[in-house]
């Protein structure tokens, strides 16, 4: 064992001991003010306050963020596996209307559309190219599909920032925003030190984001998509 973990273990303990000893000394000095009866009243008030907080939290504290149960996470995991299977078979049938988040209509000149992708975050967004006979030449549709992005039972899909999609110099630019940070304050009325070690083996706890978002570029059959970075995959 190195010195650092010992230091981090003993400093809070030492702090606690010092706090207790100071309180004990203070208690001795304020014995005349804090008689046993008054102390008992104070402690009872504190307990009543805690009970009131519990009642308030039970009836009025509401979280708008639902937490998925382990079985729901398992179901989502299976769904992701299905999506992955369809995608690997170049089958776009998993891209449903309900998962559409935004569509960009773009215009360009000629029969070639070069694509430039700026992704410094190595985002998990998949970019797919699909031929669409209903689209006129010189036009394209870029559609962003959002699937659940589950982390420890919480769906982050609403927090995922959309990429910037635009045409400049007759090139299609797809730019990802810098990494966004989301901070959740989670209430777990348990002993986390026990649950954490126990749940490692039982609970699906990881992140299922490999197919959380897909960007589809629909182009007419006469158009060629120029992807020099090799990041765009064909889908039927």
């Amino acid at each position: 064992m190195t010195i650092t973990p010992l230091f981090f273990l003993f400093i809070p303990l030492l702090f606690l001991v010092v706090v207790f000893l100071i309180l004990n000394k203070l208690g001795e000095r304020t014995k005349n003010i804090w008689t046993p009866k008054r102390t008992m009243i104070g402690i009872t008030c504190y307990i009543i306050l805690g009970f009131t907080a519990f009642l308030y939290s039970s009836f009025f504290s509401e979280s708008t963020i639902p937490v998925l149960s382990p079985s729901e996470i398992k179901q989502a995991e299976k769904k992701f596996e299905r999506i992955q299977k369809y995608d690997q078979e170049y089958n776009s049938s998993y891209l449903k209307e309900g998962n559409k988040k935004k569509t960009w209509k773009i215009n360009f000149e000629g029969n070639t559309l070069p694509v430039v992708i700026n992704d410094d975050n190595y985002s998990s967004l998949k970019i797919r190219q699909r031929y669409n006979d209903t689209i006129e030449p010189g036009k394209a549709l870029v559609t962003y599909y959002q699937f659940p992005d589950i982390v420890e039972g919480i769906d982050l899909s609403d927090e995922v920032p959309l990429p910037n999609v635009y045409v400049a110099q007759n090139k299609l630019f797809i730019e990802f925003l810098s990494e966004q940070e989301v901070h959740y304050y989670r209430i777990k009325a348990t002993l986390d030190i026990l649950d954490f070690n126990r749940e490692i083996e039982h609970k699906p706890y990881g992140r299922y984001d490999s197919y959380s978002s897909v960007l589809v570029i629909d182009i007419p059959r006469s158009t060629e998509l120029e992807d020099s970075q090799g990041l765009v995959q064909y889908i039927d």
Partner: peptide, 13 residues
């Protein structure tokens, strides 16, 4: 991972 990072502060006993 990706373009979103998540932090959890757990309030337990």
């Amino acid at each position: 991972g990706g373009n979103i990072s998540v932090q959890f502060s757990d309030y337990s006993l």
